[in-house]
């Protein structure tokens, strides 16, 4: 079974701070991590590798050279191969151009059974890239996968909904996007760390390595453009009413009346 995992390196937003003067994000010194949902995607692939002998995991990422770090970490967790799509021509891409580039790379890798991608990246929160890749490759897709099983080439997944779930059976090849409820990602292993720099485990592909139309990728190929970034205005703090049930309800009713809400 051949599995491709799409993985992105992102700034650790839990470590992000806002400049109190300018109100913008301070990106300097923020550590980079593997996007959390993507770690769940990788973990599910690794679980299959633990279970079956013939599983090969290729991790694919698009990003700047420094994303090598995330891919080496994926190798140290147990992936077999990694490919970084890195080229000036890929830069500044929106989700449309990104999925075009990733899909081209996946076509080149070929012969895959399952593509796992994280639901969304914490630095963009669009949740678009996974589904778009499936569309471009003409594959069935299931998003928000919270549990996964495979038997005789048939995949059964639980797809999380806001207030419940669907159980979906789907044939391979298939693209699945994963959420954190799916599993608990493992750590790197010491053995993995000391083999992850081994020859041939990490490749960089540029524009000339994949078959894409340059007008469809990178900044120029991106139909969406960011006009302006801003930090939303902080909402005022809520008010907590205290007292006995009677006092609180009376107070609540009078306050709602005050605002002409009732």
């Amino acid at each position: 079974m051949n599995i491709i995992v799409c993985l992105k390196q992102v700034p650790d937003t839990t470590e992000l701070k806002i400049d109190p003067v300018t109100g913008t994000l301070i990106r300097k010194g923020v550590p980079s991590i593997i996007n959390p949902d993507d770690k769940n995607a990788l973990e599910e692939a690794l679980k299959l590798k633990d279970k079956y002998e013939d599983v090969k995991i290729t991790v694919l990422s698009m990003g700047p050279a420094q994303a090598e770090e995330a891919l080496r970490e994926a190798l140290a967790m147990g992936a077999d191969d990694t490919i970084l799509l890195s080229d000036r021509a890929f830069g500044g891409a929106d989700t449309w151009a990104t999925s075009e580039t990733l899909a081209a790379a996946i076509r080149k890798i070929g012969n895959y059974d399952i593509i796992f991608a994280g639901r969304q990246a914490i630095d963009g929160d669009t949740a678009q890239v996974g589904p778009q890749i499936a569309e471009r490759l003409n594959l069935p897709q299931v998003t928000y996968v919270q549990s996964f099983d495979i038997k005789d080439g048939k995949v059964t997944v639980k797809r999380a909904l806001e207030d419940g779930y669907e159980i979906i059976e789907v044939n391979t090849p298939v693209l699945l996007t994963t959420i954190k409820e799916l599993n608990t990602p493992r750590y790197m292993s010491v053995n993995g760390i000391f083999t992850c720099y081994g020859e041939g485990k990490y490749k960089v592909w540029g524009l000339n390595d994949i078959d894409v139309d340059v007008t469809n990728i990178g900044l120029k190929g991106s139909p969406t453009q960011v006009k302006k970034s801003f930090t939303p205005e902080q909402k005022g703090a809520g008010e907590i009413l205290k007292g006995t049930t009677k006092e609180v309800t009376t107070l609540l009713v009078s306050k709602l009346k005050e605002k002409h809400l009732i």
Partner: peptide
């Protein structure tokens, strides 16, 4: 080394 950095990161998380 890069490996030592990774070991530190991994054991710390562990």
């Amino acid at each position: 080394t890069k490996e030592q950095e990774m070991v530190k990161k991994m054991v710390r998380a562990f």
